[in-house]
């Protein structure tokens, strides 16, 4: 079970959270102007990286707030969790190496 640091509540067990999929996907401002291809990209096509991923989590059995996290999908180690609305933080090579360990 993962230990996840909620930016609002601190470290909690994974069972308190639900995963919200890829982070930083903005709903198109004007959906009607999109082509089918662009709409499909928005709705269905996802980054599925073997390595660092930016993803959303919701502290469902806690503060119930969404936040974002960067995690290495090869090890499931978190690099950082951060509040919704913040840009994706830069990951230093040291942090990346630690997460890949």
């Amino acid at each position: 079970m993962l230990l996840i640091r909620c930016p609002y509540c601190g470290e909690r067990a994974e069972v308190e959270f639900s995963n919200g999929g890829e982070a930083h996907i903005d709903r198109p401002r004007d959906p009607m102007s999109l082509t089918d291809e662009e709409w499909a990209q928005y709705l269905y096509m996802r980054d599925n990286p073997k390595g660092l991923i930016a993803e959303r989590w919701r502290h469902a059995h806690g503060c119930n707030r969404f936040f974002n996290a960067i995690r290495d999908t090869r090890t499931d180690r978190f690099v950082v969790t951060y509040e919704i609305g913040q840009p994706r933080p830069e990951v230093t090579p040291e942090q990346a190496a630690e997460a890949a360990r």
């Binding site: 079970m1 994974e14 069972v15 990286p49 090890t75 499931d76």
Partner: peptide, 12 residues
């Protein structure tokens, strides 16, 4: 529930 390539998962 999360994307992972680890070939393991949570015990729960």
């Amino acid at each position: 529930s999360y994307v992972s390539y680890t070939q393991r998962g949570g015990l729960h």
